[in-house]
Amino acid sequence: MDTIKPSVPRKEMILWYPMRVTYGREEKIKDALDTLNVRNFLPMMRLRGWVDANGEPHQNIVPAIRNLIFINSSQERITELKMFNKECNSLRYMTNPFSHSDDDYLLTVPDRQMENFMRVASVQDDRLIYLDPNVDYLRTPGQKVRIKDGDFKDAEGVIKRIKNNKRVVVEIHGIAAVAITFVPAIWLELIEE
């Protein structure tokens, strides 16, 4: 069977690139990309709050996954930003060590998978636990589900046992994973594969 090659070279295609960021500059890069109208996603989370000496409550919102940002652009545009924009020069492409061709050497995330991950990770909530994407329990099979209601409506994930509890895990294989600590069973719809 012949595969159809896209008419646009891969370097010019708009794709989601997971990018490493050196020295914890995720927020500065996000601000620079937002200013340049380059679509990006930086998962954020709230740290537990504290009360200062005046009795004022405070909360920090920080990057949920250190040294990682997702950029939706062409490889040419990102390379141009890395070379000519001071704020973006600390960006590093993530690569596939098992690649044997130039077409899949740089890691990208399919649009549908990225939208699903963003649907969950954009909720700054104590119900989320960010996981190391390379731990063994993520490799165990689980039932695929879709969430039918609530803050995570339409998100798809896999039920996994984490910390002795069943959780819905949404994962970008090898890059990022987030577990939802509680979803009522009535909101879960099984997905047949």
Results as ranks from 00 to 15, higher is better:
P43D: 03
Y17L: 00
Y17D: 05
I29R: 01
S7D: 11
T22C: 12
P9H: 14
V38A: 07
P9A: 11
N40H: 09
L36W: 01
P6F: 09
E26M: 03
V8Y: 06
Y23N: 09
T3N: 10
L33Q: 02
Y17K: 00
D34W: 00
T35W: 09
I4T: 07
R20W: 12
D2E: 14
P6I: 01
R10E: 09
D34V: 00
A32H: 02
R39C: 09
F41Q: 01
V21C: 02
V21M: 00
R25S: 11
Y17F: 10
R10P: 15
K28W: 11
M44W: 03
P9N: 15
I4E: 15
E12L: 08
P6R: 05
Y23M: 10
T3Y: 13
P9Q: 07
D31A: 12
T3P: 03
P6S: 14
K28P: 01
R20D: 10
P18A: 05
L33D: 00
N37Q: 08
L36P: 00
P9G: 15
V8F: 06
T3H: 12
G24W: 08
D34C: 02
I14T: 14
N40A: 05
L36I: 03
E12M: 08
T35M: 11
L36E: 04
K11D: 12
K28Y: 06
T22K: 06
F41E: 00
E26R: 04
N40D: 03
P9I: 15
R25G: 15
V38H: 02
E12S: 15
L15M: 07
M19F: 04
D2P: 01
V21S: 01
I14F: 09
K30D: 04
N37D: 12
I14Q: 05
I29N: 02
S7G: 08
K28V: 06
I14E: 09
L15R: 05
S7E: 12
L42I: 01
M13I: 08
E27K: 11
L42W: 01
T3W: 10
V8N: 08
K30L: 13
K11S: 10
D2R: 06
T22F: 15
K28A: 13
K30S: 05
R20H: 08
V21T: 04
L42N: 03
K30V: 05
T22D: 15
A32M: 04
K5N: 13
R39D: 08
I14D: 07
K28L: 11
Y23E: 12
I29V: 06
D31V: 08
K11E: 14
V8E: 15
G24H: 12
E12H: 06
I4G: 05
R20N: 14
I29K: 00
K11M: 13
L36H: 03
M19W: 02
I14Y: 06
T3V: 11
